[in-house]
Nucleic acid binder design. Structure first.
Lengths: 151, 151
DNA sequence: TCTGGTTTTATAATGATTATAAGTTATTGT
DNA sequence: ACAATAACTTATAATCATTATAAAACCAGA
């Protein structure tokens, strides 16, 4: 494990510069705009696996003219561009995650928090899937997190 | 005359007797009714990971008074009773599966079909989940099935 | 500054699911 | 057996996340 760089989930990270955000979008062939930069920054500094409304409500404070449709549009754009991944772990609500290494997600049914955990994905793929073109892998667990178990 | 119906998994299933269906419900503390028996029979004889509407439309042919709400109610009841599992693998549409051994699901993005595959679930659980109460595990893959790859 | 294209916004539409209330059917107690 | 009561089903309305649409705002180049 890396001792030098702290990369724990749920913590805020140093805000990236506009320069860095713009470059990140360009790499993925997405033109920059105020809203897109804001939403990308949100995703990079929050690791809450946010819903559209979590993003919308927070950014609304700073930009009261923001439209919920813009958040939907932008996330769909990021999705197509390969910037984010969408989680179907919460009933009737899409959750988003900046695309990083493959990992599983655990959702606590009590507090609703979503945790990451490592998965050895080689162990997943069985012989039966020979001949299948795999584009996307998802591992979702549900239950109760340690904090909620203590109550 | 019993015509063998074609299933997507290639297997035909003998229709269970009313006796067997009733017993199966009783074991799970679900009172039997015409509609519940019908829906349970559908789930046992089809292995298509059906949606509410797939079940509703097929049963409607035999029982034209059937309500879509009944199918929703019954599946939610089966879910609470532990008779079925719900899959969140298709966007904006719940799919149901008679509860059997743990296995993964592969959804073909081209034809929409859902395939089962074996997963060694011991390999899934990492050290990080010590202390978590796991109630439910899901493994969803998406991509293209061999048949659709050939086109 | 005009012009054409892109992005954002506000609002309406969609569609799966749930809630509600009324109508049926089954069960219980006498 | 028969009313009383509970359980189940049905039809319809409501909900709510998401998408579609069209108008307004923004931006880059001539």
């Amino acid at each position: 494990m890396k001792a030098t760089k702290k990369q724990t989930d749920g913590y805020a990270h140093e805000p990236p510069t506009v320069q860095q955000l713009t470059t990140m979008l360009s790499v993925h062939k997405v033109r920059p705009s105020q809203q897109r930069l804001m939403i990308l920054e949100y995703l990079l500094t929050h690791h809450n696996h946010p819903s559209v409304d979590m993003i919308y409500n927070e950014l609304l404070i700073k930009v009261p003219t923001l439209s919920r449709a813009t958040v939907y549009n932008t996330l769909n754009l990021f999705l197509k561009a390969g910037l984010v991944r969408v989680l179907d772990i919460v009933e009737n609500e899409a959750r988003y995650d900046i695309l990083t290494d493959f990992h599983g997600h655990f959702k606590c049914n009590t507090c609703g928090e979503i945790f990451n955990f490592r998965v050895i994905d080689e162990a997943l793929v069985s012989e039966e899937l020979k001949g299948f073109g795999i584009d996307d892998k998802n591992v979702y667990f549900k239950g109760t997190c340690p904090k909620c178990l203590k109550k």
